[in-house]
């Protein structure tokens, strides 16, 4: 069985690198992008199984990206986990919920909590590589 693919988009590359190392160690295939526009290109090319998106990225953030993907066959149904460093995430969280977010996570999040959320979408047994 082929590995599940996760696309991580965050403008802080050290964070996406950290998440990539962690998730690859768990058997996922991980691609990264540093903004929404780049993420859209990668998503069209690879059709990942899960998106982990930073809400705020220069040019095109997570919410804008999802709005762009709306109506694109194959892309508009990919589950999304948002991560954000915002201080007052309540409003963001309700926007995220409206856009169908599987989870909203505030930085700094617990790694275990992120993994638990990923496992809700991509159950661990499928990753037995």
């Amino acid at each position: 069985m082929s590995k599940s693919q996760i696309l991580i988009a965050d403008d802080d590359e050290s964070l996406s690198t950290a998440l990539k190392i962690r998730l690859e160690s768990m058997g996922f295939e991980v691609v990264t992008a540093s903004n929404g526009v780049q993420a859209l290109e990668v998503a069209r090319e690879r059709t990942p199984d899960l998106l982990i998106l930073d809400v705020n990225m220069p040019g095109c953030g997570g919410f804008e990206l999802i709005e762009k993907m709306d109506g694109i066959q194959g892309l508009d149904s990919i589950p999304v986990i948002y991560i954000t460093g915002e201080a007052t995430p309540k409003e963001l969280f309700s926007t995220g919920e409206r856009l169908g977010a599987m989870a909203m996570m505030r930085k700094p999040f617990e790694t275990d909590a992120l993994i638990a959320n990923i496992h809700l979408i991509l159950p661990p047994m499928e990753q037995a590589a």
Partner: peptide
């Protein structure tokens, strides 16, 4: 807040 939180996560 935003600028502190991301490096902390890293």
């Amino acid at each position: 807040a935003h600028d502190f939180r991301t490096p902390l996560t890293v």
